[in-house]
Amino acid sequence: VAIKAVSRDGIRRWGELPDGTRAPLEIVLLDKVSNGFPGVIQLLEWFELPNGFLLVMEHPEPSQDLSRLLRAWGFLPEAMAWGLFRQVLQAVRHCTSCGVLHRDIKPQNILLHVASGEAKLLDFGCGTFLKDTVYTQFAGTLSYSPPEWIYLKRYHGEEATIWSLGILLYQMVCGKHPFRKGPNTIWDQLPFPARVSPGCQHLVRWCLSIRPSDRPALEDLLCHPWVQDIPRP
């Protein structure tokens, strides 16, 4: 198992569990998604202490997060990236079905079981309840936030999620973040190595459409030909 300590002083957002218990929002969200789905880290138990809370979560062994794997390998073979990306899509779909928006999808928050290749989405500390209306507060990692947040300070949950999924897939197959940091980001330049298939390139470019309404819905991603078909090695 893994144990996470949360200081009471650091808790900014609270929620309510089904039995009416008041708890940090992270615990409430984990409780909603921890119903046995294999692609999301499961909250096993939690305890309230005088100065904070302890969260007891599953932790497959041996395992490592995706960012460590990318640092070691540089980039992933496309067939491997395909398998991991499909698992992440299913995890996001599960969260959506539970009414949860993760808001911090990135390699550091994807745990890989070394032996089986099973991926799990973890760390719901930036998450919130999913809603159809616009969000005007940001939580997560700024370099994975979409242009509409950078320029307009507003975003919709699914559209921002799709953007972060596009960055994630680009990182897996190219080994680096697609955009330079700083105010002069050129959003529409996405160079790909020749080894990346046209289908994968199309999917990434679609996810990283500048206009939010041009991005695919989550179900569109799941039905995309590249996601449906196993890439050739």
Rank of each mutant, 00 (worst) to 15 (best):
C95M: 08
Q42F: 01
P107N: 04
V227T: 07
L152Q: 14
A23S: 06
V88C: 02
L190A: 09
Q201K: 05
K153L: 10
D214M: 05
D214A: 14
S209V: 04
L54Q: 01
D65F: 06
V88M: 11
P231W: 10
D123M: 09
I27S: 10
Q228V: 11
F129G: 08
V33P: 02
K106R: 14
Q64R: 13
V134M: 15
T133V: 07
V1P: 04
G140M: 10
F53E: 03
G166K: 06
V28K: 08
P191R: 08
V28I: 04
D229P: 00
Q87I: 04
S67Q: 13
R68H: 08
A139C: 13
A160T: 01
I167Q: 06
E58Y: 12
E219L: 14
A91W: 07
L122N: 01
R211Y: 07
P225W: 09
Q87W: 05
R8W: 00
S197F: 02
I41C: 12
T128L: 01
R195S: 13
G52S: 09
V6R: 12
L54A: 04
R12S: 12
S7V: 00
W73D: 07
T141M: 11
D188H: 09
R13V: 01
W82L: 01
K131M: 05
L152W: 13
A194E: 14
Q189A: 07
V173H: 02
R86G: 15
N51Y: 08
L29T: 03
L55S: 11
L25K: 12
R103Y: 04
D9G: 02
R13F: 11
D220M: 10
A72T: 02
R154Y: 02
T141P: 05
L30N: 12
E48Q: 15
G117D: 06
G175V: 03
I186R: 13
D220G: 05
D214Y: 09
V196R: 06
D19G: 04
Q228L: 15
K181N: 03
A139V: 00
N184A: 12
P183C: 01
V114R: 15
L101F: 11
K120F: 08
P198G: 03
I186N: 12
I230D: 10
D31W: 15
L165K: 10
W187F: 13
A194L: 03
C95Q: 08
F192T: 01
P50I: 04
R195H: 15
P24R: 09
V100A: 10
V56E: 09
F179N: 00
W187L: 14
L76N: 03
T161L: 10
P225Q: 07
D229T: 08
K106V: 00
Q87L: 06
R215W: 07
T133D: 14
I186H: 08
V40P: 02
E219K: 10
L49T: 13
S97T: 14
P225D: 12
H224Q: 07
D229E: 15
T161Q: 12
D229M: 11
G140S: 05
W163C: 08
L84V: 06
G127L: 06
D123N: 12
R154W: 00
L142P: 00
A5H: 11
A115E: 14
S116T: 15
T161P: 02
V204Y: 10
P233F: 10
C174Y: 03
I230F: 15
L43I: 05
S63M: 10
L121S: 06
E118Q: 14
K120H: 09
E158Y: 12
